[in-house]
Design a binder for these strands. Sequence first.
DNA 1: TCCCAGGTCCTGA
DNA 2: TCAGGACATGGG
Length: 287
Amino acid sequence: MNIIQNNNKITIHDVKDFDVKHIFECGQCFRWNREDDGSYTGVVKNKVINVLQEGTTVEFRNIDDFEIIKNYFDLDTDYGVVKNILNTDEIMQEATKFGSGIRILNQDEWETMISFMISANNRIPMIKRVIENLSACFGEFICNFRGKDYYSFPTAERLSAAPVEKILECKAGFRSPRIKEAARRFLSEKEVIYNIRNMTYDEGLAYLKTYSGIGDKVANCILLFSMRHFATFPVDVWIRRVMQTLYLSKDTKDEDIKKFAEEKFGKFSGLAQQYLFYYAREKEIGK
DNA sequence: TCCCAGGTCCTGA
DNA sequence: TCAGGACATGGG
């Protein structure tokens, strides 16, 4: 990996196990959108970043802080090693090959909490729309990039102070009062939340589930996608389908699917889940 | 019109 | 403990 920085741009040559399409479209994040030239634009730490990949060269435009990139894209983890550990059967070999280049982004805890609360009983395009509505309504204007206005993800201060009706107008539906309540709690408990990555998995899970609107699945997604608890295997409709179709019987309960997968995939269960989720959704397995 | 979506919560057995 | 229904919203 060879890194060059200049002119508000960071270029990495000879990048390994990195595929922008797979990273941004595998379902872990909601604020990245594909541009006409195949690059992706999104917001990280209140900065608008554009990412273009050509082969093993990746350009990060509109940013000069490599630490942000390294941290967000988890560049210190060797995903080649991870895939070798996970590839114990033909199904996973197929899934990791299909989603090769997926990396687990290191996303902000607060944004991930709210985003996955919105994901409950919702579709990915709608989730993205609601998050953009909330950002435009309650976030701070950052800049215009390629003709589109970008806003920061709203702070807990803004969301806790917002009338529920205004959150409803962003199409958050029945989740609206839960979002406001989570924001209110976050204000006084943010130190706890930003420390969950240092807690045990069980402690973190139990704490997150005390929030209205955060059940088992959402809590596990938050732990995996923003708190680096990689040993968890969140079970949603797609994972249920793919596991019941390829590994287990049709009537296997979510709890048993999770247990089976975590025993099988161990400390990288979360990555296995993400490869399988992407594979299942793109191939419509079990649908 | 009905069904469903990266579920959660509440109720009644 | 567990099945069943409600919940906003919008696309197929």
